[in-house]
Nucleic acid binder design. Sequence first.
DNA 1: AACACTCTCAACCGCCACGGC
DNA 2: AGCCGTGGCGGTTGAGAGTGT
Length: 426
Amino acid sequence: MGRSPCCEKVGLKKGPWTPEEDQKLMAYIEEFGHGSWRALPAKAGLQRCGKSCRLRWTNYLRPDIKRGKFSLQEEQTIIQLHALLGNRWSAIAAQLPKRTDNEIKNYWNTHLKKRLTRMGIDPTTHKPKTDALGGAGGGQTRDAANLSHMAQWESARLEAEARLVRESKLQVQNNLGSNNTQPARLVLNKITTQQQPSLPPCLDILKAWQSSWNKPPQPSTTKENNTKIMHSMYAMMLSTDDTLESPTSTLCFPGTTTTTMLPVSNNHNNNNIGVLFNENNSNMYSLATNIDDGVFMKDNTATMLHLQMQDDDIMAAVEAFRTYDDNSSNKYNNNNNNNIVVVPPLLSNSVVLEGFNNESNDNNNVASLVVYDSNDNLSTEEAENLAIINGDGSLCNVKNLDENNKHYWNNIFNLVNDPLSGSSVF
DNA sequence: AACACTCTCAACCGCCACGGC
DNA sequence: AGCCGTGGCGGTTGAGAGTGT
């Protein structure tokens, strides 16, 4: 009844490939191409079936395979595409050059699936798990709503990121021919259209961010506008290295420590603004809250919650906030939606913490760079002037969060609910 | 050091789609 | 139209590495 095996199995080797076998396979394919996989083993002098050879080649030996840890951007792309495509690993792999479907499948099963589960999100549906909705308590309902918002927000954000990364990567590739040593700078030049002075990498990024400030917040934002505005985020991401990093991730520079700041706010009370710190690439997130004296106290243990994270990415940060909210005695425990508002990472080394405010430069509408001593605390006023990039790519600061939230969520919901939201996989 | 347990991921298996005959 | 060979895909396995006791 069943079909016979693709090849005669008797006498054929199975199991792990030896270096000698790899060498034979590579040498043959490099010289003759693979041709018929069924005929290949005999021609190449391998005691393997054709299927095994094909698998070994496509999943391991192919020269254009990128091995090693998945970047944050790759992770996010996988999650987002999985939400759209399900377990269609080959389709997902097609969006991640140099990664194989097998590798992506493995990574999903061993890392990403577990992470979503930890966050209370069903990895199959990418929606909050039903058991997280159990019970009749209003707090649980609110939490479920938050989770739903987060899931939708994440989905929308990843959709936009995946799209823009592809676009940005194309730009990089187009520019690599003349100078492949500084791809990030090339991208920045394209985006900012301004003459780029010789700046250290971190200032390149800040410059890119600064270009965002040149654009006023969008009262209503089209998808086309989204793409343009959010370019600045990707300029930042691409500036870190040739590896793609999320604008919400911790940026890494040689010889520096890093801080990711995620201003966290509810809608109606500035006293509840907080800042989520991820320092030194550790898995420890700290949530600093705006407390009695109106100062963000990075080092005040009485008002910070240290959260051990297993992953140093934005989802972990979201989880951190959610967890904090669950356990909060009062500060964030209100009847409003607690939204995470993400700003691009503000860079710091051991001495300075850098950020922008938009108070000055009225004449030319160019934001100024404010340098904080990282040993200082961030005042409320300073914190309120931190840039917030909305989900729709428009900008506001903490002060104006209320007004912008409507646009923010409306755009997210529109994006999530739009089945033709621009993914090239369709 | 030894053992148990967990995790990772390369590799295998079975099924399916497609094209040639 | 139906059969067969082949390549591709997704689910699953199990050896080895890593970690904890």
